[in-house]
Design a protein around this nucleic acid. Sequence first.
DNA 1: GTGATTTTGTGACATTTGTCAAATGAATGC
DNA 2: GCATTCATTTGACAAATGTCACAAAATCAC
Lengths: 211, 211
Amino acid sequence: MYASRWTIFSEKNRILAANCTTMDNLIRPFLERYCHGMVLTTDTLSELENHMTIVKYAKDKILLAENQTHDYAYYILQGAARSYYLKDGIEVNTWFAFEGEVIGSLHAYNNLPSRETVELLEEATLVSVNLRTLKPFIHSNLPISNFIRAVIEEYAQFLEDRLFNSQFMSSMERYELLLKHEPQALQRVPLTYIASYLGISRETLSRLRSK
Amino acid sequence: MYASRWTIFSEKNRILAANCTTMDNLIRPFLERYCHGMVLTTDTLSELENHMTIVKYAKDKILLAENQTHDYAYYILQGAARSYYLKDGIEVNTWFAFEGEVIGSLHAYNNLPSRETVELLEEATLVSVNLRTLKPFIHSNLPISNFIRAVIEEYAQFLEDRLFNSQFMSSMERYELLLKHEPQALQRVPLTYIASYLGISRETLSRLRSK
DNA sequence: GTGATTTTGTGACATTTGTCAAATGAATGC
DNA sequence: GCATTCATTTGACAAATGTCACAAAATCAC
């Protein structure tokens, strides 16, 4: 259908290509998730596709580096990532992301240098979205404007929820919430990072866990 | 110009009407703030105006009540507001807003019940935006879609900043940030609310201040 | 103005959490 | 397999913060 439009530039893409008859099978979950009943025409899909590619990176790859501007946002098809900030030389973890989540920030979107560093926790397969080339179309194309608004709305809702939780919940409650919402986090993310994410020391988390 | 479109339904609106030759002088700062160079045609402005009115409320007025859905968002022309949440029967303050800021949440926008209560700290003059009647136009009108996206983008940026600060800054640093960014807060918001906003007890804030 | 109410500040003490140090457990490389 | 490294747990103590009680100050109502 429109698979031919996908350009693959990962070195290790063979596994990927072998497992999927068409590339659009990979990108479709991303597009459908933010359509919310809107009908995207073939033209709109093609236009969106022009700014997306599928990439595969090894563990520890830095997707976004602190103090640098970035042209891409990512959608995780497979893998896990974390974001952290250096406060007085110490890493403070801000979030973890897994399959089906978007990695991006308004700083990148607005071409401002990133405050945080985003690093892969595992080898990952991602949809890479070129914000620079996509952005001009957002202002002039209604379906794309609506699509991007849906992405940003969900992101803002995510931020609202996180802020709400960080203000109203104790460390223990937030730990339990993480267990409930992302039980996989406990298997895939070191406890040191989780403690830092919760805003408590490793030792305190360890003691909370033993109850 | 297009002042006649404004319907005023505040009981105390006489002062307001007397101070402004045209009502659009009041709404214009709100519209211009989110245009970002976009040109809004007279038609678009008229359409936006159809969903906005100017209202005036007394101190302690509840703008949004917890667990209820709300049809309006607000832009503060004059006055101050606070948002709080009841945690185990205790008020936890989440934010304060002053002139030139928007009062709204994605929960209201998405017709979901509010988790927080928004209350006026002073008598206030507001631009009230009807989300229910405006929303259908967003999806079908590009300039309006872009305008609303600009509002949501700024809101998300605000949330990103707040979340960043709440994770990386100590209570004292966040207190100093509040002093710097909203020095008026100290004059217009009781310290009890500020302590709750910072996530510390009144007593601890009092001790931090005396240094 | 005066008394009542609300807001803010201060001291004593309990609780929580961080810090440092060391031990245990798990994963990795050769 | 064994040594090495990293992650996690546990204990002892110090520092920070919360809680409670009450005093001082400011604000409000009449």
